[in-house]
Amino acid sequence: MVNNILDFEKPLIELAAKIKELQSFMDEKGLDLSEEINRLMERAEKLQKEIYADLDTMQIIQIARHPNRPTASDYAKYIFDDFIEIHGDRKFGDDKAMLGGIGLINNQAFTFLGHQKGKTTKENLSRNFGMPHPEGYRKALRLMKQAEKFGRPIISLINTPGAYPGIGAEERGQAEAIARNLMVMSDLKVPIIVVVTGEGGSGGALGIGLGDRIMMLEYSYYSVSTPEACAAIIWKNAEKAPEAAEALKINAKALKKLGIIDRIIKEPVGGAHKNPEMSAKLLKTAILEEYEELKKFSVEELIENRYQKYRKIGEFSYKSDDEMLKEEVE
C-alpha cells in the first residue's frame, strides 16, 4: 500500500497530534487549555500556508500522485447535475483506465473524458493505475466524434502516469490510437477544454489532451517523461530526479510561464484530496468560464484558433544569410 502521508507535511501532522493530545487532556482533567490550543492551531495554519507556498516540484509530484487525490469519476459526480457513463470502443473492449460519459451542467450538455485511477490497490489493478491501452483512446475517439455529431463541448481531464507500455498495447497499436486522436481532435467542430488534474504523463496524457484551453490544477504536473526516467536517460542516474524535475519545467507555474498552458486552477489548502468537493467546485467554475469564452467563436474561428495555438509552439531561431552563405561555400 502506498504511504498516504506526504513527508513534507510531517511537522503539520506532529502539531495536529499535539493539539489532539491537549484536547483530550483538557476533557479528562477539566482544565482550560483553550488558549494554548488556539495558539497551536494558529501556528498549524501558518505553517501549512508556509509549506504550501514553497513546494518544490518533487513535492508537487507527490501531491499529484497522492492515493486519495480526486479521480475523474469523483469530479464527474461533483461537476454534473446528471452524468451517465458510456462504455467501450466497439472494436476490442472497455478500457477501465479511461472514463467516458455524457452529462448536464445547468442544462448544457457535455461529453466527458478522463483517465481513471483507483484509490485502493484492488481498484487500481482493475483501472490499470490510470494507464490506458489503445482501446481506451479509441473509446475516447468514439465519444469525441459523437460529441461533434451532437454539438456537445468536451471536457477532458488528464491524470495518468502514461499510456500503458505492454505487449497487447503495442500489438493493438498504442501509437496509432494516440496519433489518430491528435489528428481528429485538431479539427473537431466542438470546443475542447482540457484540465490536467494530477499526473500528465507524456503521450498518454496528450492522447486526450489536444484542445482549445489547456488548464492545470495547482498541484499537478505535465511532462514529456517522469523525472526519474529523464534523469536515468540524460545523466544515467535516476537519483538525480529532483534536478530533472526542476530542469524539465513540469509544474503548472513553469508551464504557464512557458505559454503552453492557459490557466492554473487553485486547489484547496493542502491539496485537492483534503477537500474534493471544494476542488471540484473550483474546477467547475474554471471550465464554465472558459466555455463562456469559447462559445463566442464560430466553428471556423474555433478550429483556426486551435490550429494556430499549436502551430506556434516551439522555440527556434533562423541562421543569418552570412552563415548560410558560408555553409554553401564549404
Binding site: 496519433a179 491528435l182 485538431s186 507524456s202 503521450g203 496528450l206 489536444l210 505535465y222 511532462s223 514529456v224 524539465l248 519545467k249 513540469i250 508551464l255 512557458l258 503552453i260 499549436y310 509552439i313 516551439g314 522555440e315
Partner: peptide
C-alpha cells in the same frame, strides 16, 4: 520538455 511533446500535436 513539454515543448517537444507538443510537437506531436
Amino acid at each position: 520538455g513539454l515543448v517537444s511533446l507538443m510537437q506531436m500535436a
